[in-house]
Simulated assay, not measured.
Amino acid sequence: MIFLDAAATTPVRREVLEAMWPYLTGEFGNPSSHHSLGESAAAALAAARSSVAAALGCRPGEVVFTSGGTEADNLAVKGIALARQAMDPSLNRVVISAVEHPAVEESARYLAKFHGFAVDVVPVDGNGLVTPGAFAAALQPGTAVASVMYANNEVGTVQPVAALADLARRRGIPFHTDAVQAAGWLPLDVRALGVDALSISGHKLGAPKGCGALYIRSRTSLEPLVHGGGQERGRRSGTSNVAGAVGLAAALALARARQDEEAGRVSALRDAFTAAVLAGVPGAELTGHPVHRLPSVASFCFPGTSGESVLLELERQGVVCSSGSACAAGSDEPSAVLTAMGIPAGVAQTAVRFSFDASVSAEDLDAAALAVAAAVAGVKGLANRR
Rank of each mutant, 00 (worst) to 15 (best):
L286K: 15
S51Y: 00
I343V: 11
F175V: 08
A298K: 10
A137T: 10
G194L: 03
T9V: 07
V190W: 04
Q140C: 00
D166W: 07
T274S: 14
I80K: 07
V130F: 04
I2L: 12
R169H: 11
E62W: 00
A275M: 11
R385E: 15
A253P: 14
R293Q: 02
D120C: 05
A192P: 15
F300L: 12
M87I: 09
S107I: 00
V319L: 04
R49D: 11
G318N: 04
N384E: 14
H289E: 09
E308S: 13
V337W: 03
N74K: 13
L311V: 09
V148K: 09
V77R: 06
S355Y: 01
G342M: 05
M149P: 05
R316V: 06
Q259S: 03
A47Q: 15
V63Q: 01
L82T: 11
A168H: 09
D5C: 01
H176R: 05
G172D: 12
L311D: 12
D364T: 06
S33L: 09
L382E: 15
R219N: 14
A298H: 08
Q85R: 14
V99W: 02
I96T: 13
V277L: 06
P102A: 00
V310Q: 14
V64C: 08
D357N: 13
A72D: 12
V180G: 10
P303V: 00
K204E: 11
N152T: 06
A351G: 04
R316D: 13
A345C: 06
S331M: 14
H227P: 13
G381N: 08
L24N: 12
R13T: 00
T274W: 01
V64F: 04
E62V: 02
G194F: 01
G304R: 09
V121S: 07
A369F: 00
R385M: 14
L286M: 14
T25V: 13
A53R: 04
A138E: 11
V158T: 15
V64H: 08
R169Y: 02
A168Q: 11
E363Q: 12
A47Y: 03
S33F: 08
M20D: 11
L188G: 14
P160S: 02
A144G: 09
L248Y: 03
L24P: 13
A146D: 07
G342N: 10
V155D: 15
A340C: 09
S36C: 00
G126R: 14
S335R: 05
L198Q: 10
G202C: 02
L214H: 07
G116K: 07
I2D: 11
P160Y: 00
Q181Y: 05
A163K: 14
C321H: 02
G304A: 06
A8H: 12
A251T: 07
R316L: 13
Y150L: 12
C58G: 09
A83C: 03
V63W: 01
Q181F: 03
L24E: 15
